[in-house]
Design a protein around this nucleic acid. Structure first.
Length: 268
DNA sequence: AACGGAACCTGAAAGC
DNA sequence: TGCTTTCAGGTTCCGT
């Protein structure tokens, strides 16, 4: 469910609740998670919560040593804030009960499909250190991205989903960015010129920034939640909002992809 | 190294 | 009203 904007929202909530708080109780309710390692967090203090792409890194400290927890929301993960001692949430997998001063809260990790991860690992954990630049943290250097795309013969949409190239762009924002840049998602990655990549980088930035702006409060805003679809073409059918041509939906790299055959140019 | 496809999971919605 | 199929905003593994 989550892409960069939703993960950033989770980061803010976790940072607010965790930083400076002491871990009092840990409950793990998923046999594929390491209950022993996570249980070892009891007695530590939350130090900071960082994000790179769609990964979160939670730093805890016990005396002078640091412990890292890496968390990924997968397709259906969420972090909820509840009162300490609140009954288990639906699909709750991990509960961190924390206290600061005399204030206690519970951070509940819920995940219907269980594609998400919550693991204790060293700071140089592979999936984290191999991430490409984060478009909103370091920004995206068009020349560097252009060079990297030159080695890829896959569709540009598929390349955008490779987190080692660029961290944080998922299916929605890849779809949106390509529409904004007027590039057909089926275009081969190595066919894009530097000006094409510049337009794409602008599109990525625009759609992620808009996504971030639309996140209000503690709860991520999703299309399904009854709210109006805030995207230009994702999950839409009918006329293109820019040129009026009917949108088309195809499958690329196993993922649903919507584009406008009227104004998104196929680069060859 | 890169590629296409299957696998990992559950549940809601659409199709029949 | 059921039963079946499809689809979902992610990553990883496996055989070419």
């Amino acid at each position: 469910v989550p892409e960069l904007p939703e993960v950033e929202l989770a980061r803010r909530v976790l940072a607010r609740e965790l930083e400076g708080a002491r871990v009092e109780r840990v409950v793990v309710a998923d046999e594929r998670l390491d209950a022993v390692a996570l249980g070892g967090l009891v007695g530590t203090r939350g130090v900071k919560v960082e994000r790179r792409g769609k990964w979160l890194r939670l730093t805890f400290a016990r005396k002078r040593t640091e412990v890292f927890v890496f968390a990924h929301l997968g397709m259906s993960g969420r972090w909820l804030v509840a009162d300490a001692g609140a009954p288990a949430a639906r699909h709750e997998r991990v509960r961190l009960e924390v206290a600061r001063a005399r204030w206690k809260t519970a951070l509940l990790y819920t995940d219907v499909r269980r594609f998400g991860r919550v693991l204790v690992a060293p700071a140089d954990f592979e999936a984290w250190s191999e991430l490409g630049p984060d478009p909103l943290l370091e920004g995206t250097d068009p020349e560097r991205l252009h060079a990297a795309l030159g080695a890829r013969r896959v569709a540009i949409k598929v390349a955008l989903l490779d987190q080692r190239l660029l961290a944080g762009v998922g299916n929605i924002h890849a779809t949106e960015a390509l529409w904004r840049a007027k590039i057909d998602p089926r275009s081969r990655a190595d066919a894009l010129t530097l000006p094409d990549v510049r337009a794409l980088v602008k599109g990525i930035r625009a759609t992620l920034t808009l996504g971030l702006r639309s996140q209000q409060g503690d709860e991520p805003a999703y299309v399904q939640d009854g709210a109006a679809n805030r995207f230009k073409v994702y999950d839409r059918t009918g006329p293109c909002p820019r040129c009026g041509t009917n949108l088309v939906k195809i499958v690329l790299g196993g993922r649903g992809t919507t584009y406008c055959p009227g104004c998104q140019r196929r680069i060859r």
